[in-house]
């Protein structure tokens, strides 16, 4: 099975709610990415078949959205916002610090596969800028020091 049976069943169930099946494509891709970490060739083929599209069409959609990816990232994907509010409050410094600390750049992953880094556009946390999103968790009002603590926390979590 390319994706878990549970997820597959969930897709089959949800699909019924869509009058046009291909409209369910983007949610399916997101769920699959969450489960697998990225969209594998097998997963793309599987989903294409489900909504009766060519694999090419599914890839067209994936390449359009920057949040969909076809290559694996780190276990913890650190997304640093540098949009206007965060930039004014030191977001770029946080991003630079992450680069230094992790030794990787934009859209790269650490060799141990633990962390990956991405400079992203607004994540909707302007009131608490600068903000960082790690997977689906938010970390706010950051400074380089606080960022260190956040990263340490994830390192520990990985070892447990």
């Amino acid at each position: 099975m390319v994706i878990s049976e549970k997820l597959d069943r969930f897709f089959d169930e949800k699909m019924k709610e869509y009058p046009t099946q291909r409209s369910f494509l983007v949610p399916m891709l997101l769920y699959t990415q969450d489960e697998l970490g990225y969209l594998t060739n097998e997963a793309i083929a599987h989903i294409a078949k489900k909504v009766d599209l060519t694999e090419l069409e599914v890839r067209n959609v994936i390449s359009y959205y920057s949040m969909l990816r076809t290559k694996p990232l780190g276990k913890y994907h650190v997304q640093v916002c540098t949009n206007i509010s965060c930039m004014l409050r030191g977001g770029e410094e946080v991003f630079e610090h992450c680069k230094q600390r992790l030794g990787i750049g934009h859209k790269q992953a650490t060799p141990d596969g633990l962390f990956s880094l991405e400079e992203v556009e607004c994540i909707g946390a302007c009131s608490w800028a600068p903000a960082v999103q790690v997977n689906y968790d938010f970390h706010e009002n950051l400074t380089p020091e606080k960022m260190d603590a956040v990263l340490d926390q994830y390192s520990r979590k990985a070892k447990q």
Binding site: T54, L56, E57, R59, N60
Partner: peptide, 18 residues
């Protein structure tokens, strides 16, 4: 045949083969 598609977006859009 649907062998051609458009990938990426904006000015980096590109025609892609299947």
């Amino acid at each position: 045949v649907w062998a051609l598609g458009v990938q990426n977006r904006g000015s980096s859009s590109v025609i892609a083969p299947n």
